[in-house]
C-alpha cells in the first residue's frame, strides 16, 4: 500500500534521506522512531509530495507520488503534529470543507457528526468555533477528517506529542481501529511506549537511514527502548 523504493533526499549537499526502502501493507501500523533530524518528517513529506525526492520513488497504492500528486492524495490522510484548522469555522464546518475537498460532498451533517463522535470529539464541541478547541480536540477533528476521507493510507507526524496520557491513549485506540479496517498507517513518533502498544511494526531511523526494522509483537517494551538507545549512542 505504502512503499519507499531507494528513496533519497538531498538538501544541497546534506543527505536527509539515504536510500530508504520500506513497505507497509494494509492493516499495518508502522512507527518510525528516531531523533530529531533523523529523516522521519522528510519521509512523510516525500509521501505527501510536499517535497520532491532527489532519487528513488515514494509509492502509494502502486502510484509514484511525484507523478500522481493529486490521485495519491485521494488515498491518503495526514495528521500533523499540531492539527491547525480554520479558527473561525466550527469543527463541523472544518470537517465538511475538508471532506468536500477530498471529494466527499455527499455527507450529510449527521454523517459528519458521526465521524466526529467516532473520533471522540465531545458532543457539545462540533458546533463551536475551532478557535476555542484544545490541542486534543483539534487532533480529534484531524482524525475525523481522515475517517471521513475513507483514506487507505494514514500519515502521522508525531500526532500524540503534547497530548495528555488519556488523550494519547484514546488516539492510539482509534489508530488500532482504523488499522483493523485495513488502513496502512505510517506514524513518526518519539513515544516508544505507544509504538510498542499500538504499532505492528517499528523502524528506527538515524542520519537518514533505517537502521532497524522490527515487528513490535516480537520485542518487549524494555528491549525496544534498549535497542533504540543503543542505536542513538553509536
Amino acid at each position: 500500500m505504502l512503499e519507499a523504493v531507494n528513496l533519497k533526499k538531498d538538501y544541497g549537499g546534506h543527505l536527509a534521506l539515504k536510500g530508504l526502502n520500506l513497505k507497509i501493507e494494509p492493516g499495518e501500523i508502522y512507527c518510525l522512531l528516531g531523533a530529531n533530524g533523523a529523516g522521519k518528517s522528510t519521509t512523510i513529506n516525500l509521501f505527501l509530495d510536499f517535497i520532491k525526492p532527489s532519487s528513488g520513488m515514494a509509492l502509494i497504492d502502486g502510484m509514484n507520488v511525484a507523478d500522481h500528486s493529486i490521485e495519491t492524495k485521494k488515498a491518503l490522510a495526514y495528521i500533523p503534529e499540531i492539527v491547525m484548522l480554520y479558527r473561525n469555522l466550527s469543527g463541523l464546518e472544518n470537517l465538511r470543507y475538508f471532506s468536500q475537498l477530498a471529494g466527499h460532498s455527499e455527507y450529510t451533517d449527521a454523517d459528519l457528526l458521526g465521524f466526529l463522535k467516532r473520533a471522540g470529539l465531545p458532543d457539545h464541541a462540533p458546533m463551536k468555533r475551532v478557535g476555542g478547541y484544545s490541542k486534543g480536540m483539534r487532533q480529534k477533528v484531524g482524525i475525523a477528517i481522515a475517517i471521513a476521507k475513507q483514506a487507505k493510507v494514514l500519515l502521522l507526524d508525531e500526532p500524540t506529542s503534547g497530548l495528555d496520557p488519556k488523550a494519547s491513549n484514546e488516539f492510539s485506540d482509534l489508530l488500532v481501529q482504523l488499522a483493523g479496517d485495513g488502513v496502512a498507517i505510517l506514524m513518526a513518533t518519539h513515544d516508544l511506549f505507544r509504538a510498542k502498544e499500538s504499532g505492528t511494526r517499528a523502524g528506527i531511523m538515524k542520519h537518514g537511514e533505517l537502521v532497524a526494522d522490527l515487528v513490535t509483537a516480537d520485542i518487549g517494551h524494555a528491549d525496544l527502548e534498549a535497542l533504540y538507545l543503543k542505536h542513538m549512542h553509536d
Binding site: 505527501l48 500528486s69 475538508f98 477530498a102 500519515l155
Partner: peptide
C-alpha cells in the same frame, strides 16, 4: 502561518 496549509495540501487538490 495558521498551519492549515499542510492539511489542505494533503487533500487531492492542487
Amino acid at each position: 502561518e495558521q498551519g492549515t496549509q499542510v492539511l489542505l495540501l494533503s487533500q487531492p487538490v492542487s
